[in-house]
Design a protein around this nucleic acid. Structure first.
Length: 278
DNA sequence: CGGGTTTGACCGGCGC
DNA sequence: GCGCCGGTCAAACCCG
């Protein structure tokens, strides 16, 4: 990914001649500084991502070559499933040792992505506010992890086929492992703006102490996990766009959840409207 | 009453 | 064929 692929600059088209409240100006300056700082952080993250992706590609290529040299026919037939599935290898996976160990357990459906969300230790909810509306249709305790796995379908099903699974990480229970399957064929229906109040929205029937979790930059360190398995150029552009999309979503979500930002934005917009009107 | 969650039952794939 | 396991269904329940 190009480090400059996501334009995170926030241009409110401020008119210097427009009379503005001093506090608001100060607030906008502060937000502008924060925006620049986040931009630098994002650029740095993108660069690190590129370096890691290159390293992993080299690692996989090296491994593939050595496998071809040392495989006996039986092994080849055993691994047929995995190599065939590699064709559909557009999945994403977390960059963890565990996931690398479990390489052959990957789900090879066309569009699978995994996102790790850091939560507060006291937050035992399995709800991740990601801008879409989900309906829970099942919960299951799996063999390899004592914490239950929740199954969600997009509320716009069956027209939208997207599903997601949410389960706490075995290594770190404060991390929610969210696996998305499929792609939404619609936009954010509830919109990020609704997130401002989403923190107090508790899903029906859920414990009152639990609260939905949003993968925001503010909540400690959200781990974005992306597809580093497939290094093919054809896949690369698709990955880039999905990464960009995700990063933009993350930023929009975190910004819109910030009441200060919302107030400043609303003031700026209303100011512009009034300015245009009069 | 409608929309959402909970949860036990059921189903199908897979390994032995 | 059997048992295990993950995923899904659907009735019961909850809440605004």
């Amino acid at each position: 990914m190009e480090p400059t692929c996501v334009d995170t600059s926030l241009n409110l088209n401020l008119d210097p001649s427009m009379p503005m409240d001093g506090d608001l100006v100060e607030e906008l300056r502060r937000l502008s500084c924060e925006n620049k700082r986040l931009n630098r952080m994002l650029t740095h993250l993108c660069e690190s991502y590129m370096v890691l992706q290159k390293q992993l590609s080299q690692f996989i290529n090296t491994n593939n070559n050595s496998d071809h040299h040392h495989q006996d026919p039986l092994d080849q037939s055993r691994k047929r499933k995995v190599s065939d599935s590699d064709k559909y290898n557009a999945e994403c996976s977390s960059i963890t040792e565990d996931s690398l160990k479990k390489h052959k357990d990957f789900n090879f459906s066309p569009k699978v992505s995994k996102v790790l969300v850091k939560t507060e230790a006291s937050n035992n909810s399995l709800y991740v506010m990601d801008g879409y509306q989900w309906r829970k249709y099942g919960q299951k305790v799996t063999r390899d992890n004592p914490s239950p796995r929740a199954y969600f379908r997009c509320s716009f099903a069956p027209s939208c086929p997207v599903k997601k699974k949410v389960q706490r990480s075995l290594e770190d229970p404060t991390i929610l492992v969210t696996t998305y399957e499929g792609e939404h064929n619609h936009g954010h229906q509830r919109g990020e703006i609704s997130f401002i109040s989403s923190q107090s929205q508790t899903p029906k029937g859920s414990s009152p102490v639990s609260s939905p979790t949003t993968p925001t930059i503010r909540s400690a360190c959200p781990t974005v996990t992306l597809d580093l398995v497939n290094s093919e150029l054809v896949e690369e552009s698709a990955q880039k766009s999905s990464i960009q999309q995700f990063l933009v979503q993350q930023m929009a979500t975190s910004l819109t959840r910030d009441p200060n930002f919302t107030i400043a934005l609303a003031s700026a917009i209303s100011g512009k409207i009034l300015d245009a009107k009069w």
